[in-house]
């Protein structure tokens, strides 16, 4: 607790020596270090939802891509993709309703549509995705291939939304860490969703003993992880520019989870193993499986750590006030 009286700052009004836009790094005189923002009430449940939504969205997209562009050997991927998509259908909405603080009024989510609210947009994405994925999956089970091909298109489009709308949901807040780099966060979430989907399909393929599409899935996972890595780098650079870089620093638990989990497991390990495979050439199945698992774990760790680090950044007035000085620069 600083001494009660705060040193006076230059007057702000007419002869404003204090310019909010100047990027000086002198510590801001805060109001007794009290939080300037309110942190969100989102925790593991929301992180799990985002992970599952991204995973099932990505799986539906890959399945559709395989169905349209792929050959007979990709039939397994299509079937398994559509089944994985059902995860989002069966676990998504319950998780969200469970996280509401007045769950008995969950249906009010469908009361209105506001294009400025990613959660409102997301509600319709999730609903349409669930509807069409369900129809595609039943068509798949019943063997009506034509029907499945018809319904899989809207499902895939909604699936694309599922992989990334949650990023825009987070960034459309005033929480410094989420709001600092809208595009990078979208990249991270999209890449992470695809990576998770591809990894899940690899694992499912191995379990089914049909590894025909393994090389495609590996390539796809590599691309997704690379996208996520680019997003992460861009985000880091942006945070440093805004002076709120220490949000993801190691000394906080969320920072460590982000560094080790999201970046480490989610991107570094898979990139290294794929690079190793390219150079070394000898496919070692156990390595592929562990990489897939690492991608999945990294994807969930990313969501968990971004949520936690974001909430912490809202609690630190130095960061929220500094972030709130930058907006006019853009």
């Amino acid at each position: 607790m600083t001494l009660v009286s705060t040193p006076s700052r230059a007057p702000y009004g007419r002869e404003a020596k204090y310019d909010p836009l100047r990027a000086d790094n002198a510590p801001i005189t805060t109001y007794y270090d009290q939080p300037q923002l309110k942190k969100s009430h989102w925790g593991t449940r929301v992180a799990l939802y985002i992970f599952i939504a991204g995973l099932s969205g990505g799986a539906q997209l890959i399945a559709t891509a395989a169905d349209l562009a792929g050959g007979e050997q990709h039939r397994g991927v299509v079937r398994r993709g559509r089944h994985i998509a059902l995860l989002g259908v069966f676990f998504g909405p319950p998780l969200l309703i469970w996280d509401l603080h007045s769950p008995d009024r969950f249906y009010n989510m469908l009361r209105i549509f506001r294009r400025t609210s990613p959660m409102s947009i997301g509600t319709y994405i999730l609903s349409s995705f669930s509807l069409f994925s369900l129809m595609t999956a039943t068509a798949q089970l019943a063997g009506w291939r034509k029907a499945a091909q018809l319904t899989q298109l809207p499902a895939a489009i909604a699936g694309a939304g599922m992989t990334t709308y949650t990023a825009s949901l987070l960034t459309a807040t005033s929480t410094p860490l989420w709001a600092a780099a809208p595009r990078s966060l979208a990249l991270q979430f999209a890449g992470s969703s695809f990576g998770a989907a591809a990894a899940a399909l690899q694992l499912a393929g191995r379990v089914d003993g049909d590894e025909a599409a393994a090389p495609v899935l590996e390539g796809l996972a590599l691309a997704a992880t690379a996208t996520e890595f680019v997003g992460a780098l861009a985000a880091e650079r942006r945070h440093r520019a805004l002076g709120i870089a220490d949000a993801a620093s190691v000394n906080t638990a969320s920072g460590a989870l982000y560094k080790l989990g999201a970046l480490g497991l989610g991107t570094a390990v898979p990139l290294a193993s794929y690079a190793g495979k390219l150079i070394g050439g000898r496919p070692r199945p156990w390595l592929m499986m562990t990489t897939a698992l690492a991608v999945l774990a990294g994807s969930f760790a990313l969501r968990l750590s971004v949520l936690a680090a974001g909430n912490e950044s809202a609690q630190r007035p130095q960061q929220s006030l500094r972030f709130a000085r930058r907006e006019k620069v853009r």
């Binding site: 923002l37 309110k38 942190k39 996280d99 009024r105 989510m109 609210s117 929480t175």
Partner: peptide
Amino acid sequence: ICNGCGYCVPACPFG
């Protein structure tokens, strides 16, 4: 109407 989704809480720039 409010079902406690809590989205407004982090959205507000003034806390």
